[in-house]
Design a protein around this nucleic acid. Structure first.
Lengths: 349, 349
DNA sequence: CTGAAAGCGCTTACAG
DNA sequence: CTGAAAGCGCTTACAG
């Protein structure tokens, strides 16, 4: 037998047509049991492995969905003996938790998951300007992309062919859907806690506005402060995954002698870096300044002090994205809920 | 324009043949620049997304590799406020770390990664006895499978078509390769430490022998004890990921009043469960009994007491597997090294 | 219940 | 530098 037997080889060995082989696998009820057994026996004898590309091409769908993540290009060495919550990626971050949700949901449904990653600028040598995301998109029935991981025009283009869910998006690419999380209520609750329980009046927000989701957080922050008659200064720029930007933001506040009483960060990832930067500069948290995060990643529970944050249902975000893609749900009945998690960094016990 | 424009549509709009469209993307140097621009413009205008299935079929390869994991079917809820190292899967486990290595290596190479998971028994309804692993295998150029995740006959079959790396394997499926880790040296060093530094003589091993890798650990354990004139009782059965088996193993020792001075576990995952079980029964670790693990997962550094273990280069395992698949390396120059990590659970400071 | 045949959307010698 | 055409390995109406 030649290498890589095909359906033709199986058909020949079983003494049937390729149509029958195909039916024996795909629609067993349509084939006489004895025929079916003969086909399966022939397939086993030949070591037949169906070619999923051919199947996908013929069927018009692939049975797989894609997840396109932001490529932090993080190269993690093996876990150190002494762990700190800021050893980036030692503990699962937001995107990792969402990915896990996607993975689990796919497993349950028997869907294969195709993983890819890039930045909006990423283009492979052979791609000639065509971003890698289309490479993933071309082989799946639906695509989940983290906002900012793929160029929005590429997503718009892809969305014309297959369903696309852009996480954290809402605004970027046309034709895509998103998973809605109640950022607003979460942030409002957090700020109200800082205002009314800890009686803070001097706030500063650190974060970026790369995605609609981040915008929603800042908007809720500013609105809540405004409601309490507290001025909201413009946000200090910082981006999750770019530690130096967060350190610079904190450094600027210190240098300008403009340290507020609360630093509200747009993500836990940034808040943990801020915690580090403040410690490095001998600033007591929460004594001198309170710090808060957003997301509820594992590391937030391990820092010293523990990080007060808004927990969002990260795995549920991933699962919901898959369900939107499969058509199992056509829209969310309600935004996914968030919850305030109080720890020491805001001044709580 | 109809839905899902194809190369034919692009060709027509650009006024060229489909061959030229194909060349414009795949072999730019072969096409006149002006032609190429026309093609790219037409593609952009139509929102053309190449069909990877068709490409894979025509080319005979897909540009993707597959990772088939053991399906623990673990459904993790959101992180709790109070974390303990035994909140299974809150922290990355062995397989998660290996997967990360695989992911990173794939990103670097521009390879897409197809994820699937199952147990040796898993077969989808539509698969009619054909395990899902072949479904993944049919759409990739190479497959990495965790030992025990897929039936070995299926792997043997697949290995006849595409390169297969079975992690933890060595013995299971014919025609597959594996990534070799120096389990022997690691375990020997651990047992020698327990023998000579802590002067222990009463040992018990907890673990299973599902894979060659686990066998190697037990063999090294038994051999090292034998070398010191210490009797090695048969291992008590326990399996990582099946917490109840580990608890039962510990429970049996307690019930039989046969608690040794050291419990050597085949994995960290089991050792952490053992730690829990012992604590639940009021047994002091390391006071009454020392406990050790193997792997060096993150959670091992977070338990109380900290878990003494043998660190293996999990991410490197994943990366090596990818390199073996791509043909970048044809064989390992040496087994991947392991390192003894001493913490409190063995009695060290 | 089974088969002949078209078609899925690409790539790639082979000509020109 | 460009095109006509075969072929990759399946699925699926359509006949029988």
């Amino acid at each position: 037998m030649g290498r890589k037997p095909t359906m033709y080889d199986v058909a020949e060995r079983a003494g049937v047509s390729i149509a029958t082989v195909s039916f024996a696998f795909a629609q067993p009820g349509r084939v006489r049991p004895s025929t079916r057994e003969a086909v399966l026996a022939a397939a086993a004898a030949l070591g037949y492995v169906p070619n999923a590309n051919a199947r996908g091409l013929a069927r018009g769908r692939t049975g797989a969905i894609g997840l396109y993540a932001f490529d932090y290009l993080l190269d993690l060495t093996e876990p150190a003996d002494v762990l700190t919550p800021n050893d980036a990626r030692l503990f699962p971050q937001y995107a990792d938790e969402v990915q896990r949700g996607v993975e689990l949901e796919c497993r349950v449904r028997g869907l294969a998951l195709m993983l890819g990653a890039g930045t909006p600028q990423t283009a492979l040598p052979g791609d000639l300007g065509v971003p890698r995301v289309v490479d993933i998109a071309g082989r799946v029935d639906g695509l989940i992309a983290f906002a900012g991981a793929a160029p929005s025009d590429a997503l718009t283009r892809i969305a014309g062919r297959i369903p696309v869910v852009e996480l954290g998006g809402m605004s970027t690419a046309e034709g895509t859907r998103t998973v809605v999380v109640d950022n607003t209520t979460g942030m409002r609750g957090l700020v109200e806690h800082l205002l009314h329980v800890h009686r803070h009046r001097e706030f500063r927000y650190i974060g970026d506005s790369r995605t609609a989701e981040f915008d929603a957080r800042y908007a809720a922050y500013a609105a809540t402060l405004a409601g309490a008659g507290v001025a909201a200064l413009p946000p200090a720029h910082s981006a999750p995954g770019a530690e130096e930007t967060t350190r610079a933001a904190v450094g600027d506040l210190l240098a300008a002698d403009a340290l507020p009483h609360v630093i509200v960060c747009s993500t836990d990832q940034e808040a943990l870096v801020a915690l580090d930067a403040l410690r490095d500069n001998g600033v007591a948290v929460p004594g001198r300044v309170a710090v808060t995060g957003f997301d509820g990643i594992v590391a937030a529970g391990l820092s010293t002090p523990g990080l007060t944050t808004v927990q969002q249902p990260m795995q549920a975000v991933g699962r919901t994205a898959v369900r939107l893609l499969t058509g199992e749900i056509t829209e969310q009945s309600a935004p996914l809920p968030t919850a305030l998690v109080l720890r020491q960094s805001c001044g709580c016990a």
